[in-house]
Design a protein around this nucleic acid. Structure first.
Lengths: 143, 143
DNA sequence: TTATATTGTACCTATATCTGTTACATTAAC
DNA sequence: GTTAATGTAACAGATATAGGTACAATATAA
């Protein structure tokens, strides 16, 4: 059975693929089946992500026969940050432990806030970088 | 049993804690037992990370009685990038699928390289940011 | 009106990976 | 020699994602 041996979180990558495919097809409707074919995965995996992208206002979906999804905005108005926020909003790029501090240890007592600041700094830096890359830049690279 | 309900990768966060504690103790030797106390985890978890930090040249370790680890450099010469590279070098911040492209689909055929470029851009951006935060800045925040 | 095709979920299994833990060989100080 | 430390190996427990089946709801199309 062709299991993927790398079981880490690929939702962001797959979502970029989805959005790029939709942008490449110039706002036309595509089905989860078509997208799953391009990405070589199961349509349900795609639909799980589509639901989040719809919820975030990046896509519009249409049920029923000849339904599907399409971009809700122009590719110039959608950034990688938008996609990341839509799909991975529940998860930090870098995790911090949530254990209680060891009261006798000054370092331990300060570490919670220190790590939060560090991680937030890294995340904000990444989000800022991603907000400057838009979908149209990605489709421009497809030859 | 006090299991941590958040089973995501905390190696970077824990390593920052380790390095900050060692810097705070001004280059003195500390044992994995002491560090584990501050971090509230098992000494083996700490030693696994120490091994990587030693291998990367950030720490020196001493076996045997009254052994332990200490910083191999000044806190000003150690950045978050160094720590990240030492401990998480085997893992991308953002994962990409490694499936074969769907040959009939132009988007699919271009997506491998496109995603690599995107992810490398994000990683390089993060590494650059992290290279500008050094250990001495972290210890300065401990009150 | 009926058949069809699609989204949107719910649910389950397999897998990978990390954490926590025990155990022990190796090593160096005392 | 005893002791206390690192460095690993091995294993169980927990979690999250991917992949997959099934089906209700829905809207087009015939």
């Amino acid at each position: 059975m062709g299991y993927n041996l790398d079981m880490v979180d690929q939702r962001f990558s797959v979502s970029i693929h989805i959005m790029t495919a939709l942008a490449f097809h110039k706002g036309e409707l595509m089905t989860s089946e078509q997208l799953a074919g391009s990405i070589r995965t199961n349509p349900t995996v795609i639909r799980r992500l589509l639901a989040k992208l719809v919820e975030a206002g990046l896509l519009e979906s249409f049920k029923g026969k000849s339904g599907g999804v399409k971009l809700a905005k122009s590719p110039k108005e959608i950034s990688l940050k938008d996609i990341y926020a839509a799909v991975c909003c529940d998860k930090k790029l870098i995790a911090t432990p949530d254990k209680e501090a060891s009261k006798q240890c000054v370092v331990s007592c300060n570490m919670g806030k220190l790590l939060d600041d560090v991680v937030n700094g890294i995340e904000n830096n990444s989000m800022n970088y991603m907000s400057n890359i838009c979908l149209s830049e990605l489709t421009a690279r497809i030859k």
